[in-house]
Design a protein around this nucleic acid. Structure first.
Ligand SMILES: [Mn+2]
Ligand SMILES: [Mn+2]
Ligand SMILES: [Zn+2]
Ligand SMILES: [Zn+2]
Lengths: 138, 138
DNA sequence: ACACTACTTTAGAATCATTATAAAGTAGGT
DNA sequence: ACCTACTTTATAATGATTCTAAAGTAGTGT
């Protein structure tokens, strides 16, 4: 399991000791090929299924928050009821399927280049992101 | 006060009786020239100052929610901690000033036309909105 | 104007996501 | 092995939002 070493590095560089629980969290987050979009509740349920450890919500929040601060995870705000996180930390755009509450990455090339014609003096731009809300054709 | 009649119509068409409290809420929301972006807490504080009535949070939530359902208000999700509402109910884009937690409208013409090159079969697009996060120059 | 009924207001409780607390457990250095 | 700082976890606290139910009010009809 060479990935484990990568996870340990991720944890250490986030200021966290590599513990059993945190390694399990890393496996769910990063042991996959595609981008993972999730809520804390999603992550918690997956951990309950896939891992033998019981991992408390406090530990999950703690680890996710540290990864977010270290820019190993990105937070996405879609609606007020809960927070989404994204293993794709680059600036990018999203579809949000309101029928399934599912987030889907949009590649930057799938969205024409966005040129802002308005500037605000004394302010710098931190990000420009597009959210496309979609629904099932009923 | 001809505006009062407009407020009464808004309320009735939202399925609400025009009460003292709801008229006060309407005044704060709609008796202004520019778009108003607010949180429930903002609105509550303004009502405490500008109005002699004491208006409970329950009434504020109730009224705002009815206006949102009737499309007299639009909800904007910026971060997970609280919900913003907008008296500009058209599809439009925003600056969000992270230094002040302030929302600012961007006109559609201030953002180049956005052409999506990716479609998702069986889904229809409900909205395409851009959020530009800005911060004070240090 | 009076009465009736359905809708409204409100204080307070309930809920839910998230954060904080603090006691018991563990990792890493010596 | 020992020490100490960091971690885990159950549990409590918080804060936004929603719910409840009792007291108040608006609209309708008389
Ligand atoms: Mn989910
Ligand atoms: Mn505000
Ligand atoms: Zn993404
Ligand atoms: Zn707006």
């Amino acid at each position: 399991m060479e990935n484990k070493d990568i996870f340990i590095k991720k944890l250490r560089s986030s200021g966290l000791r590599p513990t059993r629980q945190r390694i399990e969290i890393c496996k769910v987050l990063y042991d996959r090929k595609k981008t993972f979009h999730f809520t804390i509740n999603d992550l918690s349920k997956i951990l309950k299924k896939k891992s033998n450890e019981k991992i408390s919500l406090a530990t999950i929040y703690n680890t996710v928050c540290a990864f977010k601060n270290r820019n190993y995870l990105k937070e996405i705000s879609i609606n007020s009821s809960k927070s989404y996180f994204d293993t794709n930390v680059s600036n990018h755009h999203h579809f949000f399927n309101e029928s399934t509450d599912e987030l889907i990455d949009l590649k930057n090339e799938d969205v024409g280049n966005i040129k802002l014609k308005k500037k605000i003096p004394g302010k710098k731009i931190k990000s420009v992101e597009v959210l496309v809300k979609i629904q099932d054709n009923n």
